[in-house]
Simulated scan of single mutants.
Amino acid sequence: MSSLLEITWTDPVTGRHGYVVIDTLVRGLASGGLRLRQGCTLEEVRGLAQGMTRKEALVYDPSDRYVPLGGGKGGIDIDPADPQATEVLTRFLAAVRPVVREQWNTGEDFGLRQETIDKVAADLGLASTVEAVFAQLEDAQDARRRLAEAFAVTVGGVSLGDLVGGYGVARAALEMAQREGITDPTAVVQGFGSIGGAAARYLARAGVRVVAVADRDGLIRDDDGLDVEALLAARDGLGVVDRSAVPGAVLGDREAWLEVPCDLLVPAAMSYVIDVDDVARIDARVVVEGANMPTLPAAEAALRERGIPVVPDFLANVMTNAWWWWIVFGDIDPTEASSFAKIDAVMHRLVHTVADAAQASDRSLRECALEVAAQNSRAVTERVGITG
């Protein structure tokens, strides 16, 4: 299926490329974040936009006020640590501003913090990067207030908005551990930004031994279990941990995370990090995709042949996107308790619905999750009409 809209932008100053892909529209709207990554391509953004279509549909509940949107995504081919990154981001958003105003509702993603995109949007005269949704709400003023209140909440020194996605990944992992009969589970988390850091925090708080994490500077490992809170306190804005804060931990190469023995392997940073050649190195019982598209299809098939289930990204990391809209549409209160209770209930339902279907039909978790998303998409179409 081809995308509804694809934009390729060239920065007139640096020559860097940026992309917007609208995969589907519902009520004329699409949802999906904007990432900054050296090497980002149109093909990557296209795949991410398709994933957003699935995420939106997957969480549909007819009892919610929130009715899923379509899927869209943006990406800029630049290292977020590049000194020119914010300037390039500003020029990109200025160029695609009409799409943001009318159709594409966006926010932080890999390599981009919400406060950064909010500041750039404000400088460009945008009240937010979800104005297209607010324009369709009768209670837009209350929705803005709820969203502002939600982002003002901090939990253990971290913004609630930076925790909900990783909390959902942790809940997906814990539900799968329970289904697989794993007791005293261990985990390895690759990536220590918003998703990976929060996933590690809530796995540890649930009693999981997080034996290794990997950031862009390499591996940090302690088979007795890392002090995750100390690591969180020692990370910078790009999720890199100050090594002086982890005395006694074993440090290793950034690719070594694949071969650390564990029960729950959580790739939570970049796309395309598990290829078929990597599968033999993996010593885990479950892979939970915290990042978008971290496992290539051939690798996922090889993992399944080894009896290692892969919880697909559009299920495991769906909660950042869903949480935004539950807040905006008023399905939950802008509090930690209300947010986490909703995530607990929805992730439990989704994981067990998908895993039960996979067990009954001898299909992969991805195949069954896609089926649920397709069924929900049809239900949304029946409810609101042609989705675009």
Rank of each mutant, 00 (worst) to 15 (best):
D139C: 07
D263E: 12
V287F: 05
T14W: 11
A302P: 04
R216C: 00
P294F: 10
V169R: 00
A379C: 01
V228T: 10
V130D: 09
R243A: 09
N317L: 05
V158W: 13
V241E: 03
D109K: 06
A122G: 14
N292P: 08
V240F: 02
D236T: 05
E102N: 13
W326H: 13
Q84C: 12
V120S: 07
G197H: 06
A301D: 11
R281A: 14
E44T: 13
A172R: 01
D118Y: 05
M293N: 11
G193E: 04
A233G: 12
E6I: 02
F314L: 09
V351C: 11
E300F: 02
D64W: 12
V310L: 05
A269V: 03
A204N: 13
L36Y: 01
R254Y: 09
N317S: 11
A291C: 08
V189W: 02
V99D: 04
V189H: 05
V318Q: 10
T381C: 09
V99L: 14
T387P: 04
E371F: 11
A298I: 00
P309Y: 07
I182R: 13
A234C: 03
D77L: 02
S2C: 06
I343E: 11
V240T: 15
A206W: 08
E87C: 03
H352M: 03
K73I: 04
W324I: 10
G111L: 02
V384G: 01
G181K: 10
G193W: 00
R235E: 01
R179G: 05
A374H: 14
A49N: 10
L124Y: 02
A143T: 09
G75K: 00
C40H: 06
T8H: 01
F314D: 07
V59N: 09
L147P: 03
D313L: 08
A49V: 12
I282T: 01
D362S: 14
L124I: 01
E138H: 14
A57D: 11
W9F: 05
L296V: 13
R216H: 12
L36M: 06
L34W: 00
I182C: 09
A95W: 04
G71N: 01
A280F: 00
Y202E: 08
V21P: 02
L303M: 11
G161F: 03
H348A: 15
W104Y: 14
L42W: 08
L69M: 13
I308H: 14
F151Y: 14
A256N: 03
S377R: 15
W326L: 08
A268Y: 06
G248N: 10
L36S: 04
F110M: 15
R145S: 13
G388M: 07
W323G: 02
R145Y: 04
G248E: 08
V67C: 14
W257N: 01
G51C: 12
E300G: 10
A199I: 10
V346F: 01
